[in-house]
Design a binder for these strands. Structure first.
Lengths: 194, 194, 194, 194
DNA sequence: CATGAATGAGCATTCATTCAT
DNA sequence: CATGAATGAATGCTCATTCAT
């Protein structure tokens, strides 16, 4: 008795995640160029041939992973598009972000590798990303202004550098880096309630 | 008559730099794994075969570039091993560092890519690197203590994160990032003269 | 639907023999070092890439052929491990051997090439080979003693030299060498019935 | 002061022998195809370039060695073209031959490798070689006839097989083979004085 | 005569992709 | 939907050969 269409759809979604999960695990340890389709297939527990039923090419698989990684990280910042309501909300968001870095080293390793690739530039400059980023910076600007910072634009850059810097250090060597020192510093400086 | 040994040495030194320069240019744009020896040879204007007269393997070439990149960056920090004498000296060092980032984007792009590679971990943990890093942190610690900071160790981490963060942003998209905002921030906070 | 495991096994066994057959044909004419994988693939009627699905490397292919050649030749001598029962049995064995040389020039060409390779020495000195050889010499010794030869050990060396010598001559130029003269000589001298 | 033409000629002859000697040493251990010109040059203590002033190509070098090896071995048999005068002369020739095998394993290793190569066939079938061989077989025939052998042609084949067989065994593993057993056997059978 | 830097064709090997089953 | 045998283009690397010095 053949599977229903519904069942097939479920299988397809599961299989796709299975494959992407395997690929992410491998890509976080090695460069995509150094990970073969055969290796990914084995890690995912499927045949090489089946891979091509889910992704037209290795490039498309890489792109899918890039997209879902970016999406995952964007989601952290967005919190469903709501405005930053005050120091507590800001604190929550920062905590969410740092916790995510700590709990998803693989994702962030991929993310940091990605932003260094020249083919990512166009991607990061795409309207979608720019929109999210622009909106987020606006939120931060308003929040920091409300908090009494003279040059909120400058502070945004500083916070961004701090987060990027400590994240890259952390994913490079999680066992040697105390990421919370920077987290607390950011909260101390930018989430003080007056 | 055959070339003198002197002449051959000169040729070999020049050629080697020619090849390493070409490789650095390409490695800064793409992952080494995605850059073929043939491409490097063409960029360097030499034949594929000659590459192997200067580097036993592609791996050795990559390693050479890793080493020279690390050496170059270490040199920025060391300033002939002298202690940090005061705010002016600190300012000079920070300027030297930021100027180097601005003028050597390729080198720093490679550097940031390198620290994400797992095979680099052992390298960065090697005594040589750890020595330099340890010595440098000691210098910074003493300087920041003299400057009146309560928790110099914390400040070192923050400055490190700031520098790493803004550098990675800058080398990713130099035309969009105003690296000097962070430079001035660091100087404002840590090089104030009392 | 995918092929059954059984079907795949059959395919792999056939293909492997196809490749080894082609390689033996070529190796019997030229030194393995002078025969490229591309040539073997063409002779076998498969793609270069497929070769590596059956043999991890060219070296492994050469080794496989060495092994199967040695095995084939050992088998000639063993005759199911039975003792040499008398002149008739001895005659049969000698005939079997000479017939095999005549009908398998390629195999013997490879065999003679092999015993000259220094890397074969350790192989020929391996316990497995030494066991078979030792057992066989013992059998011969007993037989020749029973036949009334004063110094059977000496005769074994002479017979061995005769066989090796005429074989190498025969496989070098089958059309010019009358191998049966030596066959008859051996039978005349060592299989006379009293 | 430039070298005289005489001196140059001497140098050239010496250099050539130096190179051929080095090549023979290496060829006796490894297949020519596995020995690079660079290796031969280093072993001979000359530059790669110089090799080409003495031999137009690697092939020509191999051919030169083939020729000189064959010449050297032919010389053993010929003894200045004199007829075989009797058992003592025959004994001397056999001894000369066996001693040469024992003292020139490298040469004989090359020789045995050579006769298995298909490109050697035409060489061995060349008039020059055939002449020498023919003449030598005639000598042997006459000698053996005089010694009272019924079928000298058959004996020639047997002696040839014995010598080839024991030689190939000896050069394969000199430390395990007692070549003199065959030498004595040949002398016993074919150099008995009546 | 002598050197070794330089070349490029050729080789072993890998791997994304296809396709018969 | 699922498999893995098969392909062939591309890659790292070697090596005979050339040639400026």
């Amino acid at each position: 008795m053949p599977r229903t269409e519904e069942q097939n759809k479920t299988i397809r979604v599961e299989r796709k995640q299975q494959i992407m999960g395997a690929a992410m695990r491998l890509f976080s340890e090695k460069n995509p160029a150094e990970v073969s389709i055969a290796t990914i297939a084995k890690e995912a527990g499927v045949s090489k041939g089946l891979m091509y039923s889910y992704f037209k090419s290795k490039d498309e698989l890489e792109l899918s992973i890039m997209n879902s990684t970016i999406d995952e990280i964007m989601e952290i910042f967005l919190v469903s598009n709501k405005v930053i309501e005050g120091p507590d909300d800001f604190t929550n968001r920062i905590n969410r972000l740092f916790d995510h870095v700590i709990n998803n080293v693989a994702t962030w390793k991929i993310y940091t590798q990605l932003i260094l690739q020249s083919k990512m530039k166009e991607f990061l400059m795409s309207p979608k990303i720019q929109d999210v980023m622009g909106w987020y910076q606006e939120q931060l600007f308003n929040y920091l202004q409300k908090q009494g910072f003279e040059d909120p634009a400058k502070e945004i850059i500083i916070v961004g550098a701090l987060i990027d810097g400590i994240s890259i250090q952390y994913v490079s060597a999680p066992e040697f880096i105390d990421i919370n020192i920077v987290r607390n510093h950011i909260l101390d400086v930018y989430a003080k309630k007056y």
